[in-house]
Design a binder for these strands. Structure first.
Lengths: 349, 349
DNA sequence: TTGATTTTGTCAATCGGTTGCCAAATAAAG
DNA sequence: CTTTATTTGGCAACCGATTGACAAAATCAA
């Protein structure tokens, strides 16, 4: 390619304006019936005579008809679009959530629109308001919004949350207790007496949740635990936390998520701090790449794919039954500890 | 979930059906003007008397008016939605592309809809057809479709591609030559005489493109090169290729992408094949996690974020100017070699 | 003051479906 | 062979905005 833009062909294909497809009126004409009959045949199977319907379907196929979702949305107010709000599309933790959500949405005949809040409550509010009129409902994953803001959205359209509990709003939360208990037991059995929680954003409900569970579990087994943070949930923040972690004198660190754990782990190794000899590191979620590190990252695995599926299915259920009451779903989804090389006996424990 | 769903509160908020907001008719009533005047005031600044417009805007604000995108889309045929088709949303190579695309779309006032083709031409065709009526245009990233299919989409709405060249369709392609030349020079200087290309899917244009460039570059410096594949572009495929790679007798492998390179690298290390001592490994793209491996993965870095931005900007340009002719954009975007530990001198070179 | 221009705002048609209401056609019952 | 019940299909209003055509009002010129 050259410095100047180079046309790959001379003429740009001419294109009909607007939706280029056939309408129900075209079908009606072809099939010799009224447009309303076409509409009924296509949307309410059984309402129309079998033979007529067959004729209409044939005409529709012949004309390569596709309904115009906007024309349909106008009278019905339903678009078959749903939004998935994530904190940061480039955070690998969302990959599997997005995939699960995609699957569930597609399966149910919905199209997923992904919105990115860029880790900011303001951006999240803006994005949510922008997308609201277009979608039938919205799934908030790891929302940073205030409870009141979520309630306000909920008053307009169906809203469900994941990794966040808001009164009156359906939520999908994995059961973190098993994983946390296993992790604390694991660290205890290795001989750790004093550990730290490298916390994430204070506005993240899940951050406080994990901290609370760790605290309980540690106290129960007589282990000391301190919180270091809050921090942003990134590789860089994990990296930057090394000095504070060392200063604290703990022998093991549990980070809010794998990104932070990996950042910390790599920074430690790079600075000659042996992992797990001098410092054990663990994270949450088991994201892509957590097993690439040396040593591999011990982590509390979250069933992200299933969570994505469940949150969307719950949302669709509420869209299709406005009378549905809010529920906490997914309580059957448990986390489990995945032990890799980043946790081990503390030197001279 | 426990056996029974557990309500988090008793009453589900009642919600008005349809779009709950005010309409231009409400504004018109409040401001004492005709609805069409409201429409003009809001969409064609200057067309309406300044004082009238101010009054209308005040009323709109007071009623918390938001335009109904569907009602607008019906007469105009424009939705301000654009689709980004990716081969697999969980492939980290798309993270940065998606992020760049998001940024560009948001900046221009568009909303991005991400569609996933699941690495399949059939799924891609289905997804594209489904999303077409809803969006103003579509960006195909690493499309698996036939040229004719892409042309057919292009005849309907603006279409741009990334990492794919189709006659008459605007494309965004990074300049892979510098990175490939650097890579071959790097391997040559280390003493490699015979290398392999671990190829990706044969339907991926970029796979053939990279293979062609590598072939040229290798031949130019008198290096032997063989193709191993095609393979699916995954960690697993990279892993599975180890035996064939070893059998080929080459001292270095360049994989179609980092996922494959990482899979191969990790499998080699796990099987006692020293990297880079017995085998040098390199990939393409520099995805998230490529630096986590031990040794780190040498790779030809692609400016994915910029590519995402550019492809969307190009698409928007074509949406807003239907007369625009197809161009190859991104002519300034070059790839560069990132050397990490996975490439080195072959033992007894 | 009158006529010519320009500005401002109204009317009404339109986009492509959906749906309540009703009449015609058909089937079942008497 | 009516009468009644049930299908089936057509008519027309409606969802909320946009826009061409045009009339009314305001501005300017002479």
């Amino acid at each position: 390619m050259t410095a100047t833009e180079e046309p790959t062909n001379g003429s740009s294909a001419k294109r009909k304006p607007g939706n280029s497809g056939a309408t129900i009126y075209d079908i009606a004409k072809l099939a010799g019936v009224n447009p309303s009959t076409v509409s009924r045949a296509l949307t309410t199977p059984g309402r129309i005579n079998e033979r007529t319907e067959a004729k209409i379907r044939a005409a529709a196929t012949e004309l390569n008809y596709r309904v115009n979702p906007f024309a349909r949305a106008l009278p019905t107010g339903r678009t078959k679009l749903i939004a998935l709000m994530v904190a940061n599309i480039t955070n690998p933790v969302f990959f599997d959530v997005v995939r699960g959500a995609q699957e569930a949405a597609t399966l149910a005949g919905y199209t997923l629109v992904i919105a990115d809040s860029e880790e900011s409550a303001e951006q999240e509010a803006i994005a949510a308001n922008k997308i609201m009129p277009v979608v039938d409902g919205i799934a908030l994953v790891t929302s940073r919004l205030e409870d009141e803001q979520i309630a306000a959205l909920h008053a307009e359209k169906p809203v469900v949350t994941m990794n966040r509990v808001v009164q009156g709003v359906s939520s999908t939360i994995p059961d973190s207790v098993p994983g946390v208990d296993q992790l604390i037991a694991h660290l205890g059995s290795l001989g750790h007496k004093s550990i730290a929680y490298l916390s994430g954003p204070s506005s993240a409900w899940m951050n406080n949740h994990r901290w609370g569970l760790l605290l309980d579990a540690a106290v129960k087994v007589g282990m000391n635990i301190v919180e270091i943070g809050p921090n942003s949930p990134t590789l860089e923040a994990g990296k930057a936390a090394l000095s504070r972690v060392r200063a604290s004198g703990v022998t093991a660190v549990v980070a809010y998520n794998d990104l932070m754990a990996i950042g910390l782990l790599r920074e430690a190794v790079a600075n000659g701090v042996s992992v797990p000899g001098n410092l054990s590191v663990a994270g949450f979620d088991d994201i892509f790449g957590a097993d690439f590190t040396s040593p591999g990252t011990t982590t509390v695995k979250t069933p992200l794919l299933e969570l994505g599926r469940i949150v969307i299915n719950r949302l669709i259920a509420e869209i299709e039954d406005p009378e549905a009451t809010a529920v906490n779903a997914a309580t059957g989804l448990v986390t489990t500890l995945v032990v890799r090389g980043s946790t081990g006996q503390p030197r001279q424990a």
